[in-house]
Protein backbone atom coordinates (compact mmCIF):
# COMPACT_ATOMS: atom_id res chain seq x y z
CA UNK A 1 0.00 0.00 0.00
CA UNK A 2 1.42 3.37 -1.00
CA UNK A 3 1.88 6.10 1.59
CA UNK A 4 1.71 9.86 1.29
CA UNK A 5 3.05 12.90 3.09
CA UNK A 6 2.11 16.48 2.36
CA UNK A 7 4.41 19.30 3.39
CA UNK A 8 2.56 22.62 3.54
CA UNK A 9 3.66 26.10 4.47
CA UNK A 10 4.32 29.63 3.29
CA UNK A 11 6.54 30.30 0.27
CA UNK A 12 10.07 30.98 1.50
CA UNK A 13 9.88 28.73 4.58
CA UNK A 14 11.96 25.95 3.03
CA UNK A 15 9.32 23.31 2.33
CA UNK A 16 11.15 22.25 -0.86
CA UNK A 17 14.29 21.24 1.04
CA UNK A 18 12.15 19.20 3.44
CA UNK A 19 10.51 17.27 0.60
CA UNK A 20 13.85 16.66 -1.08
CA UNK A 21 15.38 15.24 2.09
CA UNK A 22 12.31 13.08 2.67
CA UNK A 23 12.43 11.85 -0.94
CA UNK A 24 16.12 10.98 -0.69
CA UNK A 25 15.61 9.12 2.61
CA UNK A 26 12.72 7.06 1.24
CA UNK A 27 14.61 6.19 -1.94
CA UNK A 28 17.53 5.05 0.22
CA UNK A 29 15.14 2.67 1.98
CA UNK A 30 14.41 1.00 -1.37
CA UNK A 31 10.97 2.47 -2.05
CA UNK A 32 9.67 3.82 -5.33
CA UNK A 33 9.21 7.54 -4.66
CA UNK A 34 7.53 10.48 -6.36
CA UNK A 35 7.78 14.09 -5.18
CA UNK A 36 5.76 16.96 -6.62
CA UNK A 37 6.88 20.54 -6.05
CA UNK A 38 5.61 24.06 -6.58
CA UNK A 39 7.84 26.61 -8.33
CA UNK A 40 7.33 30.12 -9.68
CA UNK A 41 4.55 32.54 -8.81
CA UNK A 42 3.14 30.41 -6.00
CA UNK A 43 6.41 30.63 -4.09
CA UNK A 44 6.24 34.37 -3.47
CA UNK A 45 4.91 34.28 0.08
CA UNK A 46 1.85 32.33 -1.00
CA UNK A 47 0.48 29.09 0.37
CA UNK A 48 2.71 26.25 -0.87
CA UNK A 49 2.36 22.51 -0.84
CA UNK A 50 4.68 19.65 -1.74
CA UNK A 51 3.61 16.04 -2.12
CA UNK A 52 5.73 12.99 -1.35
CA UNK A 53 4.41 9.50 -2.15
CA UNK A 54 6.17 6.18 -1.75
CA UNK A 55 5.62 2.43 -1.90
CA UNK A 56 6.44 -0.53 -4.11
CA UNK A 57 5.29 1.30 -7.27
CA UNK A 58 3.92 4.84 -7.32
CA UNK A 59 1.90 6.20 -10.27
CA UNK A 60 0.51 9.65 -9.44
CA UNK A 61 2.86 12.22 -7.89
CA UNK A 62 0.05 14.20 -6.27
CA UNK A 63 -2.12 13.76 -3.17
CA UNK A 64 -5.83 14.51 -3.06
CA UNK A 65 -8.39 15.16 -0.31
CA UNK A 66 -8.50 12.43 2.32
CA UNK A 67 -5.31 10.73 1.06
CA UNK A 68 -2.35 11.94 3.18
CA UNK A 69 -1.01 9.68 5.93
CA UNK A 70 0.90 12.61 7.41
CA UNK A 71 0.66 16.34 6.89
CA UNK A 72 3.66 18.35 8.04
CA UNK A 73 2.47 21.95 8.42
CA UNK A 74 5.03 24.75 8.72
CA UNK A 75 2.37 27.23 9.88
CA UNK A 76 -0.95 27.04 11.76
CA UNK A 77 -3.29 28.56 9.22
CA UNK A 78 -1.75 26.41 6.50
CA UNK A 79 -2.40 23.34 8.66
CA UNK A 80 -6.10 24.23 8.75
CA UNK A 81 -6.18 25.05 5.03
CA UNK A 82 -4.82 21.66 3.99
CA UNK A 83 -6.48 19.51 6.69
CA UNK A 84 -9.00 18.22 4.14
CA UNK A 85 -6.16 16.30 2.52
CA UNK A 86 -5.51 14.22 5.65
CA UNK A 87 -6.74 10.63 5.84
CA UNK A 88 -9.40 10.17 8.52
CA UNK A 89 -6.82 8.14 10.54
CA UNK A 90 -3.82 10.26 9.50
CA UNK A 91 -1.57 12.46 11.63
CA UNK A 92 -0.93 16.18 11.30
CA UNK A 93 2.25 17.75 12.72
CA UNK A 94 1.87 21.49 13.18
CA UNK A 95 4.48 24.17 13.74
CA UNK A 96 2.61 26.67 15.93
CA UNK A 97 4.29 29.63 14.22
CA UNK A 98 1.81 32.16 12.82
CA UNK A 99 2.46 34.19 9.68
CA UNK A 100 -0.11 36.80 8.74
CA UNK A 101 -1.41 36.47 5.18
CA UNK A 102 -1.88 39.72 3.23
CA UNK A 103 -5.62 40.11 3.99
CA UNK A 104 -4.69 40.10 7.70
CA UNK A 105 -1.76 42.48 7.16
CA UNK A 106 -4.17 44.85 5.40
CA UNK A 107 -6.74 44.55 8.17
CA UNK A 108 -9.33 43.04 5.81
CA UNK A 109 -9.44 39.81 7.86
CA UNK A 110 -8.46 38.52 11.29
CA UNK A 111 -6.00 35.68 11.82
CA UNK A 112 -8.34 32.98 13.16
CA UNK A 113 -8.20 32.10 16.87
CA UNK A 114 -8.03 28.51 18.12
CA UNK A 115 -6.75 26.91 14.93
CA UNK A 116 -5.17 23.93 16.70
CA UNK A 117 -8.31 23.25 18.71
CA UNK A 118 -10.40 23.38 15.55
CA UNK A 119 -8.12 20.86 13.84
CA UNK A 120 -8.40 18.57 16.87
CA UNK A 121 -12.18 19.05 16.98
CA UNK A 122 -12.37 17.95 13.33
CA UNK A 123 -11.11 14.58 14.54
CA UNK A 124 -7.45 14.76 13.55
CA UNK A 125 -4.52 13.27 15.46
CA UNK A 126 -2.47 16.44 16.06
CA UNK A 127 1.08 16.95 17.27
CA UNK A 128 2.30 20.50 17.78
CA UNK A 129 5.70 22.04 18.29
CA UNK A 130 7.07 25.57 18.33
CA UNK A 131 9.90 25.15 15.83
CA UNK A 132 11.01 28.76 15.42
CA UNK A 133 12.63 29.21 18.88
CA UNK A 134 14.21 25.76 18.51
CA UNK A 135 15.72 26.79 15.17
CA UNK A 136 17.00 30.04 16.68
CA UNK A 137 18.57 28.04 19.50
CA UNK A 138 20.19 25.71 16.96
CA UNK A 139 21.78 28.75 15.31
CA UNK A 140 19.41 30.35 12.79
CA UNK A 141 15.70 30.99 12.25
CA UNK A 142 16.19 29.56 8.76
CA UNK A 143 16.57 26.04 10.20
CA UNK A 144 12.84 25.82 11.04
CA UNK A 145 12.44 23.39 8.14
CA UNK A 146 15.10 21.05 9.51
CA UNK A 147 13.56 21.09 13.02
CA UNK A 148 10.29 20.07 11.38
CA UNK A 149 11.99 17.33 9.37
CA UNK A 150 13.19 15.98 12.71
CA UNK A 151 9.64 16.01 14.05
CA UNK A 152 8.42 14.20 10.94
CA UNK A 153 11.23 11.63 11.19
CA UNK A 154 10.12 10.75 14.70
CA UNK A 155 6.68 9.90 13.30
CA UNK A 156 7.93 7.65 10.51
CA UNK A 157 8.81 4.23 11.87
CA UNK A 158 9.61 2.90 8.38
CA UNK A 159 12.78 5.03 8.01
CA UNK A 160 15.77 4.59 10.35
CA UNK A 161 17.26 7.67 11.96
CA UNK A 162 20.63 6.98 10.31
CA UNK A 163 19.01 7.19 6.87
CA UNK A 164 17.61 10.63 7.73
CA UNK A 165 20.98 11.87 8.88
CA UNK A 166 22.62 10.60 5.68
CA UNK A 167 19.98 12.35 3.53
CA UNK A 168 20.48 15.53 5.54
CA UNK A 169 24.26 15.39 5.13
CA UNK A 170 23.85 15.01 1.36
CA UNK A 171 21.36 17.89 1.08
CA UNK A 172 22.82 20.78 3.09
CA UNK A 173 26.11 22.66 2.57
CA UNK A 174 28.96 21.29 4.71
CA UNK A 175 29.51 24.55 6.58
CA UNK A 176 25.91 24.50 7.88
CA UNK A 177 25.87 20.77 8.66
CA UNK A 178 26.46 20.96 12.42
CA UNK A 179 23.79 23.59 12.83
CA UNK A 180 21.31 21.53 10.79
CA UNK A 181 22.12 18.30 12.66
CA UNK A 182 21.41 20.14 15.91
CA UNK A 183 18.12 21.46 14.52
CA UNK A 184 17.14 17.97 13.36
CA UNK A 185 17.83 16.48 16.81
CA UNK A 186 15.73 19.17 18.48
CA UNK A 187 12.76 18.28 16.29
CA UNK A 188 13.39 14.56 16.64
CA UNK A 189 13.60 14.63 20.43
CA UNK A 190 10.75 17.08 20.85
Amino acid sequence: MNKSIMIVGVGGQGTLLASRILGAALLDCGYDVKVSEVHGMSQRGGSVVTYVRWGEKVASPIIEKGEADIILAFEQLEAARWLEYLKPDGKIIVNTQQMDPMPVVMGAAEYPEGVIDAIRAAGADVETLDALPMAVEAGTAKAVNVVLIGAMAKNMADVDKEVWLKALRESVPAKFLDLNLKAFEMGYNN
Binding site: A79, E84, P88
Partner: peptide, 19 residues
Amino acid sequence: DAEFMKADVNIVPRPPVLC
Protein backbone atom coordinates in the same frame (compact mmCIF):
# COMPACT_ATOMS: atom_id res chain seq x y z
CA ASP B 1 -16.21 10.45 -3.41
CA ALA B 2 -13.31 10.96 -1.00
CA GLU B 3 -13.95 11.24 2.76
CA PHE B 4 -12.18 14.06 4.51
CA MET B 5 -12.30 16.30 7.58
CA LYS B 6 -12.52 20.05 7.76
CA ALA B 7 -11.38 22.56 10.40
CA ASP B 8 -14.14 24.90 11.50
CA VAL B 9 -12.19 28.17 11.30
CA ASN B 10 -12.11 31.03 8.84
CA ILE B 11 -9.38 29.99 6.41
CA VAL B 12 -8.03 33.36 5.27
CA PRO B 13 -6.58 33.17 1.74
CA ARG B 14 -2.82 33.53 1.37
CA PRO B 15 -2.11 34.90 -2.11
CA PRO B 16 1.48 35.34 -3.31
CA VAL B 17 2.93 38.77 -2.49
CA LEU B 18 6.01 40.85 -3.25
CA CYS B 19 8.73 39.59 -0.88
